[in-house]
Design a protein around this nucleic acid. Structure first.
Length: 274
DNA sequence: TTAAATTCCTGTAAGC
DNA sequence: TGCTTACAGGAATTTA
């Protein structure tokens, strides 16, 4: 599923292709994928505007338009954004097509339809509660270990649940929560507020390493994730624990355990993570 | 305010 | 082989 590294990869792929292009037409074959504003208004506000920027915030892709509105894309579980030429056959579950002035198309496809499209100013989307108030970017150079420690303190929930909380830290999902907890040698069910400053520093470092490594490898194609060209990432072959329940821990050889935390399958090593 | 449970959705894989 | 069922999970929403 697309988390920070996957969304970062797609945004970086899209940027040089989209910036400077103008959207000449927009077709929605499944309008309810647009959560704000009404589909008709959405199309009106998108068409005939130049794309000025492509960015990322948490798991959101932010496409800045000439009318100073943001086209916001959240890929959910199975969402895909792709640049294709017009002769590429339309794939099943393609819910939106943006026609570009160079003849190519930006297509949004999402079999499970957990994703969504939004349009508006950042302020408007925040105040209308269409977008949550996201926590800091974990890979931001300014995101210090101390900041993470402050966000863990006094929290009675598990480390795993906290890492998944987008208002605490932006962009971490099930894959990289498990990966960074393993790297930090911390039990996922440990109460977040019980961490020492030193352990929080270790988690901070592990979190950034997990995410940066995955970005270098263009993300994890564990499910349907593909980049903007439809290609798989490479990180799925390098994952330490995610999806490896029952298989031996790379450090100690003991079979990895799977438990359920916050409704999510959580894989960890009972020996290495205490 | 915080935390946990529930819901949305379809492809896939396991089980009978 | 073919059908049914369980499972995967991000985040909005609901409940406590």
């Amino acid at each position: 599923m697309p988390e920070l590294p996957e969304v970062e990869t797609i945004a970086a792929d899209l940027r040089p292709q989209l910036v400077g292009r103008t959207i000449t037409r927009c077709e929605l074959s499944f309008p309810t994928i647009v959560r704000h504003p009404e589909p008709e208004e959405f199309i009106d506000a998108v068409v005939d505007h130049r794309i000025e920027s492509v960015g990322r915030r948490g798991k959101y892709i932010l496409i800045g338009l000439g009318n100073s509105l943001l086209l916001v894309v959240h890929l959910g579980m199975t969402g895909q954004l792709r640049i294709v030429d017009e002769v590429t056959p339309l794939e099943k579950h393609t819910h939106a097509v943006f026609f570009l002035d160079d003849g190519r198309q930006l297509r949004y496809r999402d079999p499970r339809r957990f994703g969504r499209l939004l349009l508006g100013t950042e302020q408007a989307l925040l105040s209308s509660k269409k977008m949550p108030r996201l926590g800091p970017e974990p890979i931001d150079p300014d995101f210090a270990a101390d900041e993470l420690y402050r966000r863990l303190r006094k929290r009675k929930t598990s480390l795993k649940a906290l890492l998944l909380d987008q208002t605490a830290i932006a962009g971490v999902g099930n894959i990289y929560a498990d990966e960074s907890l393993h790297r930090a040698r911390l039990r996922p069910d440990r109460v977040a507020g019980s961490l020492s400053k030193k352990s929080a520093q270790r988690l901070h470092e592990s979190l950034r390493e997990s995410l940066q490594t995955a970005i270098v490898n263009r993300g994890s194609s564990v499910d349907t994730y593909r980049d903007a060209w439809g290609e798989m990432g490479g990180q799925q072959e390098k994952l330490l624990v995610y999806g490896r329940a029952g298989e031996p821990c790379f450090t100690c050889g003991r079979p990895l355990s799977a438990i359920r935390i916050a409704g999510r399958t959580t894989v960890f090593c009972r020996r290495c993570q205490r």
